[in-house]
């Protein structure tokens, strides 16, 4: 590929190639300060290529290719090349990861212990993790949490946070402008802007944490804390994992171990500030 970038997010190395300079330049800016893969060897390759050769110049659209492919992944406009790179990285993780049980969850850490948040798209787990990452927690990741089947530890995946629509203005109040990527208008998910995590989250991307609390946040409801039985937590987490089935017995052992050892509940909240306060209350009560 003509334009290339290699980088490491948590324990995973990526090599991203593009037929155009724009997406790589945007990635370089957004991922400034991220290390390269160990020994220069990437785990996954993402290729951003024209859908047809002539489409590189004429109404260019980006098709996402890589080691692992979805046949019906729709091409994106070149202006959304950064989103294409993000989707390509997600796709490689979701389809190809074998070393860790991949949970579609956000995670933050304090004192070596991890808070894991999972839920439907739009539940607010990404925004909540990003905000906690600015309020005294270490952001481990806004999209994926990696559970090590051997140790039960949670490994970070602190990629650039993908902020959508109203979350962009909310985070802009807490975060300096130079940590934001370009505004991507009219994407399939609406307006998107990426946010580089704080420097400490990047510097500590190799440090795992012990899972201490699992939350199922739900945005847009009156403040409430609802208990969830462990069997339901287990089932929800199998649904939140893209590689639970392919890991077989190791995945079963890892997930049952996580659920048996980690308290969990659902939280409803009307706005993100209420969620932060709920999280702090629950966290403070963990040991009491």
């Amino acid at each position: 590929m003509r334009y290339r970038l290699s980088l490491k997010v948590g324990p995973i190395g990526f090599r991203i190639g593009s037929a155009w300079p724009g997406p790589i330049a945007a990635l370089r800016g957004l991922y400034a300060g991220y290390p390269g893969p160990d020994d220069g060897i990437a785990d996954f390759t993402v290729r951003l290529e024209p859908e047809r050769p002539w489409r590189r110049w004429l109404r260019p659209s980006v098709a996402i290719h890589g080691d692992h492919m979805l046949p019906d992944a729709a091409p994106l406009a070149l202006a959304h090349g950064l989103l294409a790179a993000e989707m390509g990285m997600n796709l490689q993780m979701a389809l190809g990861l074998r070393r860790y049980l991949l949970l579609h969850a956000s995670a933050v850490e304090r004192d070596g212990r991890a808070l894991v948040m999972t839920g439907e798209s739009g539940a607010g787990k990404s925004t909540l993790a990003a905000l906690l990452g600015e309020r005294g927690w270490r952001l481990m990741g806004d999209e994926f949490a990696l559970l090590d089947p051997a140790s039960g530890a949670l490994h970070p995946f602190p990629r650039a946070v993908s902020l959508k629509n109203s979350a962009i203005a909310l985070m802009a109040a807490d975060v300096p402008e130079d940590r934001f990527g370009p505004v991507l208008e009219d994407t399939p998910k609406g307006r998107i802007r990426h946010l580089r995590p704080r420097a400490d989250a990047i510097a500590r991307m190799a440090d795992p944490a012990t899972p201490a609390l699992i939350l199922f946040p739900r945005y847009g409801h009156a403040r409430a804390i609802r208990p969830i039985g462990p069997a339901e937590v287990f089932v929800r987490l199998t649904q939140a994992s893209t590689n639970y089935v392919s890991l077989g017995e190791a995945g079963f052992r890892a997930l049952t171990g996580l659920v048996a050892a980690t308290p969990a509940c659902a939280i409803d909240y009307p706005d993100t500030e209420a969620a932060v306060s709920l999280v702090e209350t629950l966290w403070a009560n963990l040991d009491s």
Binding site: A231, F234, E249, F252
Partner: peptide, 22 residues
């Protein structure tokens, strides 16, 4: 079968099929 008890329910991993049952 790999069996784990979780508060009144039993999680079973069935090795021949690779399926999980609650």
């Amino acid at each position: 079968r790999l069996t784990i008890e979780l508060e009144g329910l039993t999680l079973v991993y069935h090795r021949p099929s690779g399926t999980t049952h609650v």
